[in-house]
């Protein structure tokens, strides 16, 4: 509409807006497009949170079905993608709680750990450290390392740094304040860095720590 486009600095509407409108009008094929577009991301996020493949499969399906059912409730003032991610995060946390009965699983509890908040490992890494490992071996190192983070740090890192949500979107999705997201993100990044250091040191460092003989 010309009136909308004439507003200075008005951004093009996100392509999802039109797709969502079509779904609301009963066009299921438009939903097919949306599912295709985001199924990988949702699966990945669910895997990161639940750390269980079957749960991730269920979460992905349930999240898309829930979003479809609740589409009328989608306000359109947030992105469809962030809205969808929020549903998937909630579903994932529910599954995680079911599996870990008795163990506290919360993203809003204040995480009492100073681990990684002060960098200890200050030796430099090899130039392209990931090249020293095969694909499968590297993936295993990365999985093991991120799985060791507290859930509240892990989820923030995954949404913000891996999936590319903004700090504000991450906060909105998780129901956290922006400062809370920022403090978790810094600690998540530093903890991961610390833990990866033992694999990615220059050769000299590796020999000193006894990893390479």
């Amino acid at each position: 509409m010309p009136t909308i486009q004439s507003i200075a600095g008005q951004l093009e509407p996100h392509p999802d807006v039109a797709l969502v409108a079509r779904v609301r009008d009963g066009d299921v094929s438009a939903y097919d497009t949306l599912v295709r577009k985001y199924e990988r991301q949702l699966f990945r996020i669910a895997q990161h949170i639940t750390q269980n493949r079957e749960d991730a499969e269920d979460v992905m399906q349930d999240a898309f079905l829930k979003a479809y059912e609740k589409l009328e409730q989608f306000q359109g003032n947030s992105k469809f993608y962030t809205w969808l991610v929020r549903i998937a995060v909630n579903e994932s946390l529910m599954r995680l709680r079911k599996r870990r009965t008795g163990r506290m699983v919360s993203i809003d509890e204040d995480i009492e750990t100073d681990e990684g908040s002060v960098p200890r490992d200050l030796a430099d890494w090899a130039p392209d450290p990931e090249q020293n490992y095969g694909q499968a071996e590297l993936a295993e190192i990365l999985r093991k390392t991120i799985q060791g983070l507290p859930p509240g740090f892990r989820i923030v890192f995954v949404l913000r740094d891996v999936e590319g949500l903004s700090t504000e979107e991450t906060a909105e999705t998780l129901g956290l304040s922006v400062p809370a997201v920022k403090s978790r993100l810094l600690r998540a990044r530093l903890q991961l860095r610390e833990r990866l250091s033992r694999y990615f040191h220059k050769k000299k460092g590796l020999m000193e720590t006894g990893i390479v003989k």
Binding site: R44, L122, P129, E130, L138, A139, L142, R193, L196, S197
Partner: peptide
């Protein structure tokens, strides 16, 4: 300098490798 470079690298590695 090491902390900055290795933290950047950490993010980049997680961004560029599909682990799931």
């Amino acid at each position: 300098e090491v902390v900055l470079n290795t933290t950047r690298k950490t993010i980049e590695i997680y961004r560029s490798h599909e682990i799931y």
